[in-house]
Computed example of a mutant assay.
Amino acid sequence: MLIESFLDYLQYERNYSEKTVLAYGEDIKQLQEFAQEEYGRFNPLEVEAELIREWIVSLMDDKGYTSTSVNRKLSSLRTFYKYLLRQGETTIDPLRKIKGPKNKKPLPVFLKENEMNRLLDEADFGEGFKGCRDRLIIEVFYATGMRLSELIGLDNKDVDFSASLLKVTGKRNKQRLIPFGDELQELMLEYINVRNETIPERSEAFFIRENGERLYKNLVYNLVKRNLSKVATLKKKSPHVLRHTFATTMLNNEAELGAVKELLGHESITTTEIYTHATFEELKKVYKQAHPRA
């Protein structure tokens, strides 16, 4: 009766949708089934924190639920017991000391080095100004790790060939310098020559369209997606994937975490640390594929 009255309260007093009420009911039912299976009975007013903890472990270890799903179920139970407390049915909330599992941040998606090599060494970017520009955009993302907005905002004055530095403006207008190598310098000089010959009248932007105006986000996003599709089967194919690829490649080749943080323009090193998890996950895959007893 307590569960039914709680679900009626959600539907008729809180005006929750039928689908939401059903989900709350299923979550409580799942706890009920677990309690009956483990202890042979279930009384909502006698549930203790220990039972909840055992249920969480069972959901994650035995049934394979993610931390997000478990936390959603715990949210349903918290609402249920708040209702019972308000109704005076109980004076103890078994979830008061329960902390849900931490939600794992998804690991960044990135291309492997051999995929990037195939793209840059073998892919056809087309002829003329657009082909030259599109290839350089991919190269710049991969060689510098800059953000999409930073690439679009790059002006001619921000490219210092004598010092081999790019000045980019990141989040909250924070500026940083990114070094570049001889190979990228050659490609940039080639692009400038083609651009200046093809489009004599243009804006101050370094990367431009055929009408001489600055690039916009969708144009760059689509050209990156189109070109990454030539070598990768990843679901996500965006400029940010190339930023992830830059960071992962740097760490795989023994760059210091602090240096990668500065190059990416991260405020905190904890943001950069997620790439160490990505490189470790890749290492585990290689180990499992290569070792006979993995």
Rank of each mutant, 00 (worst) to 15 (best):
L2G: 05
S5Q: 15
Y9I: 10
N15Q: 15
Y16M: 13
K19A: 12
A23P: 04
F34L: 04
A35V: 04
E48R: 15
A49S: 10
Y65R: 07
T66P: 03
T66Y: 03
T66G: 03
S67P: 09
S69E: 08
N71I: 13
R72D: 01
K73A: 10
L77S: 05
T79Y: 07
Y81M: 10
Y83E: 09
G88V: 09
K97Y: 10
K99I: 05
N103V: 15
P108E: 14
K112F: 13
E113C: 04
N117W: 00
F129G: 11
R133I: 03
I138F: 09
V140A: 11
F141S: 06
G145E: 02
M146R: 02
R147S: 02
R147W: 02
E150H: 02
I152P: 01
G153Q: 11
G153W: 08
L154S: 06
D155G: 07
V159K: 07
A163R: 13
N173I: 02
R176G: 00
R176N: 01
P179Q: 05
Y191D: 02
S203R: 11
S203I: 12
E204G: 08
E210S: 14
L219F: 11
K225N: 14
K230M: 04
V231I: 14
T233S: 14
L234R: 00
L234E: 04
P239A: 06
V241S: 00
H244V: 02
H277M: 08
V286G: 08
